[in-house]
């Protein structure tokens, strides 16, 4: 057993000497390290300025874009026209639904007085 301990001690002494790591191996290891290293979040060096909006651009953006705004404008103009001119076809439809020829007498919120009256 003494012989074995001597041999192991010699081997250990050799193992304790600094082992030269080949440059190629170290380069591969450091390349792996570079690829695997977490990158801290980097803010952009220059922040791009927001574009200045004109009044109408701001309004159209508010409604969801020029297309939507144009649609809304068209619908509004049509409604005003129909209300002002009251074409006979439209009036007929209104009478069919409301049962009254006078559109301005249409009661959208009927009174509930009749329901509250005492018997």
């Amino acid at each position: 057993m003494d012989n074995l301990d001597d041999l192991l001690a010699q081997r250990a002494a050799f193992a304790a000497q600094p082992l030269a790591v080949p440059d190629a191996l170290m380069a591969r290891i450091l390349a792996d390290a570079s690829r695997a290293q977490p990158r801290p979040y980097a803010f952009p060096a220059t922040q791009t300025a927001l574009p200045q909006l004109t009044f109408w651009q701001a309004v159209s953006d508010l409604f969801g874009g020029r297309g939507v705004l144009a649609g809304l404008a068209t619908v509004a103009c049509t409604a005003v026209y129909l209300g002002a001119v009251q074409p006979s076809g439209i009036t007929a439809v209104t009478v069919a639904f409301a049962g009254n020829s006078a559109v301005d007498q249409l009661d959208f919120m009927p009174s509930i007085d009749s329901l509250l009256a005492e018997e």
Partner: peptide, 19 residues
């Protein structure tokens, strides 16, 4: 190294790889 120090990998490798 985990915090992004570029030199830490080299120093740690020099300590561990020979063993």
């Amino acid at each position: 190294y985990a915090n992004g120090d570029p030199d830490a990998a080299r120093d740690l490798a020099r300590r561990i790889v020979p063993r």
